[in-house]
Design a protein around this nucleic acid. Structure first.
Lengths: 224, 224
DNA sequence: CTGGGGCGCTAGGGAACCGTCAAGATCGTC
DNA sequence: GACGATCTTGACGGTTCCCTAGCGCCCCAG
C-alpha cells in the first residue's frame, strides 16, 4: 500500500487530510512538526510527503533539504502564503508541487496521483509465479530456475493470452483469433505446435504438464 | 540545449513567454493552437511542453492525450480557469503541473526547473555501471576502461531510453517513437544501425553483446 | 481387435528479421 | 564556401522464426 506522510501543525486540517487519504486507501502517517517529519520518514520511508511550510519548530525549506539529502520521495507543499518567493524557494529546494491554502481536496488528490504516477513510471509489476517458472509481463521475461528462457514473439503472445485468464478455460478458437488474427479460427495445428514449444520451454515434465493444461475437445487452461 | 514547446493562443503572452525563456537559455518553439502543438512536437520532440488549456481549435485535454500517446515529456498547464474539475482532468490526463492565470514568471520558471529535474531519470541511479562501461546520466558521459567514449546525440538518446528501463524489454516501435518522434514506427533500419554503433563503442565483443541484447521480433533490452 | 479422431512432437523450407558495411544527404562550424 | 561530423538510405549475407506436413500415441467406439 502507498504510504503518505502528512506534516501539518493545524490539528483540524491534519485530521481532515488523514481521514480523506485513509478513505482513498492510502496508508497514512501524520506528524505535527518538522523534526517529527524527518524522524518518521527515516524510520519508515514514505512513498509521498505532504508538507505544510508553516511549521512551529523549523522552516519548511529545511525539512525539504533534510529529506532530499537521502531520498527522492515526491514532496507536495501546502502553504498559506501565496508569495512567489516562497514557492520558488520550495520548488528549487526539491519540492515537486505547491498548493496554496485554501485548496480543494479533489485537487490535492489529483496532484497526489500525478506525483505518484511520475515517481513510478507506470510499473504495475505484473509478475506471475509458479513452482517451476516466473513470468514478468512488463519486462517480457521468463525465468525458470533462475535461468532466462527465450520465447519467440508468437510464443509470448500465446502465453500472454493464457495468463490473462488464470485458472480459466480458453477455447482454441479464442486463442487463434487473439494471436493469429480474427480470420483464423480452425487451424488448430498452430496451437498444438506452439503449446508443445511452450511446454518444452517452461514445464518441468513437458509430457505431463502441470500449468499449461489441455482440456480435450475444448481448449487450454493456465494453472498458476 | 533544452527545447521548450510553448502552446499559447494569446499573442502577447506567447511572446512574453518566449522572450523570458529564451533569455534563460532555453531553445524555444512557440505555436498558437493544439494542432500546431502536436505537429511541432512530432517534428521536433521537445524536452518540456507549456500548454494553455484554452485553445481555439481543440480541447487542451485532447492535446495532452495526443502527446501522452507516445512521449513522457513533462507538460505544464496554464489556464485561466481555476475550477477544480479542470485541474483534475488535466492532471489525470497526464499533465505534470498546473498554473492558474495570472501567474508570476518566477514561479513558472521554478516549476519548469522542477519538472525538468524530475524528468531526468537520475532519481535512483545517476550512474549505471556494468562490467565493461559506465554511464553517467546526469553528466551525459560514458566511460569504458576509464576512457571517455564519445556518443553522438542520437546514440545518447537511444541509450538513455534503453537504460530508463533496465532489464526490461523495449519494443522497436517505442524506441523509434521516443527517439525519432511519433511519425516513425517502422523504419527499423535506424535502430539496427545505431544499435550496432552503440555496441561497437560500448561492448567488449560487439558480435556477442552482453548488455545491449536483441530479442528477435520483439525489440531490445539493456542488461545492467 | 481394429480403425479413426484428437493430440503431441519433430524436422525442414521459405519468409521475415537482424547485423554490417558503405555511400549519399544533411547539418553545423569555421 | 569548404570541411568534418552526423544522420539517412540502400543492399548484402546470416540468423531466427513461422508455418506446414508427417508420424506416432492414446483413447474410444464399433
Amino acid at each position: 500500500m502507498t504510504r503518505v506522510l502528512i506534516v501539518e501543525d493545524e490539528p483540524q486540517l491534519r485530521r481532515a487530510l488523514g481521514i480523506n487519504l485513509h478513505a482513498r486507501r492510502y496508508d497514512v502517517v501524520t506528524v505535527a512538526d518538522g523534526g517529527g517529519a524527518l524522524r518518521a520518514a527515516a524510520a519508515n520511508p514514505p512513498d509521498l510527503v505532504i508538507l505544510d511550510l508553516g511549521l512551529p519548530d523549523m522552516d519548511g525549506v529545511e525539512v525539504i533539504h533534510g529529506l532530499r539529502g537521502w531520498t527522492q520521495v515526491p514532496i507536495i507543499i501546502l502553504s498559506a502564503r501565496d508569495g512567489q518567493d516562497d514557492k520558488v524557494d520550495a520548488l528549487d529546494a526539491g519540492a515537486d508541487d505547491y498548493l496554496t491554502k485554501p485548496f480543494g481536496m479533489d485537487e490535492l488528490l489529483a496532484r497526489i496521483r500525478a506525483a505518484l504516477r511520475r515517481a513510478q513510471p507506470n510499473e504495475d509489476a505484473p509478475v506471475i509465479t509458479t513452482e517451476t517458472f516466473t513470468i514478468d509481463l512488463a519486462a517480457k521475461r521468463v525465468t525458470r530456475a533462475d535461468v532466462e528462457v527465450r520465447l519467440t514473439p508468437t510464443e509470448w503472445h500465446l502465453l500472454e493470452v493464457l495468463t490473462r485468464y488464470p485458472g480459466r478455460l480458453v477455447t482454441g478458437k479464442q486463442l487463434l483469433q487473439e494471436v493469429w488474427g480474427p480470420t483464423h479460427g480452425v487451424e488448430t495445428n498452430y496451437l498444438r505446435v506452439y503449446m508443445a514449444q511452450l511446454r518444452r520451454k517452461l514445464e518441468a515434465e513437458p509430457a505431463h504438464p502441470r500449468h499449461l493444461i489441455t482440456e480435450p475437445g475444448l481448449g487450454y487452461r493456465f494453472e498458476p
